[in-house]
Every structure is written in structure tokens, then in C-alpha cells.
């Protein structure tokens, strides 16, 4: 699996979080191609969740897509596709066309981290109140009131 990916996309970095958990680090430019390849060729058709991470020391934001598979024999395999972008202008392409289920997960990541998903159908607030006008709450420089 890892070999297949690196053969197709020489620029990606793969490492194993553990057995059967493969993390693929790529850039915002290639993430969609990697996603399409993972879905159609490698059989990762079932989106599990999408997470953002704020690496404030490196001034970067990370988006990680966790995808599983319903293909027999690789249900236990989780592929994590990650991309990193600069913190000041976080724009990444949306993966809704690849996995339709990513829509609400991306919407959540947008409101929690302020990451813009280009081409996303609707990025209004899902969990936060409509009138939220502070920093996105899961950014590290947002300090919770009461703390």
C-alpha cells in the first residue's frame, strides 16, 4: 500500500502510526489526487472523520482525513491523509467530491479552525452559535473564558 502510494506520488511522505494505520502527508496541491487514488484504486471508500490540528509553534495548520474501507480484507486499515498549510491564509481544496460524507466534517473543521475549504457547498456554522465572532475556538491562541 505504502509502496503503491509512493510510486504514484513521489512527493508524498508516508509513515506508519502503527500496524494498519498509514499516515500520508501531502500538500494542499496534491491532496485531492491522493484522495481520488485512495478511493478508487486502493478502495478507501468510507470516510471516518476529519480533524484539524493547530501547530502554532510552526505557524501551520494541519487537516487530517481519516478514511476506512468497506472492501473485504482491509476493513481494519485506516488511512490518514494529511496536509499542512500556513496559518495566516489557510485555504485547502474540499474533498466533498471524493467522499460525500466529508461535508459536515469539513464544515466543523472550518468553524473550529478557520480553515477555508475551497469549493465546499456550505460553510456556515454547524455547531457554534450563529453569532460567533471570536477566534475559531480550537486554535491554540483562543483562550477559553474561565481559564
Amino acid at each position: 500500500m505504502a509502496a503503491q502510494l509512493t510510486a504514484k506520488f513521489p512527493e508524498v511522505k508516508v509513515d506508519w502510526m502503527k500496524e494498519r494505520r498509514l499516515k500520508v502527508s501531502t500538500s494542499a496541491m496534491h491532496v485531492k489526487e491522493v484522495g481520488l487514488f485512495a478511493r478508487s484504486t486502493l478502495g478507501f471508500d468510507h470516510i471516518s472523520t476529519v480533524s484539524g490540528v493547530d501547530w502554532i509553534a510552526k505557524n501551520e495548520l494541519e487537516v487530517v482525513y481519516f478514511v476506512g474501507s468497506t472492501t473485504p480484507g482491509q476493513e481494519d486499515f485506516i488511512l490518514a491523509i494529511s496536509e499542512r498549510i500556513a496559518r495566516d491564509n489557510p485555504v485547502v481544496p474540499t474533498m466533498v467530491e471524493v467522499w460525500k460524507g466529508a461535508e459536515y466534517h469539513e464544515r466543523e473543521t472550518h468553524e473550529m479552525f478557520g480553515i477555508n475549504f475551497q469549493g465546499h457547498p456550505d460553510q456556515s456554522h454547524l455547531f457554534l452559535p450563529e453569532d460567533w465572532n471570536e477566534l475559531p475556538p480550537l486554535r491554540k491562541d483562543y483562550v477559553s473564558p474561565g481559564r
Partner: peptide, 9 residues
Amino acid sequence: YFDSYNVLR
């Protein structure tokens, strides 16, 4: 949830 950003105390 005393220190949560979204909860009324």
C-alpha cells in the same frame, strides 16, 4: 463545563 467557551454558567 465551567471553563467551556460555549456554556452558560
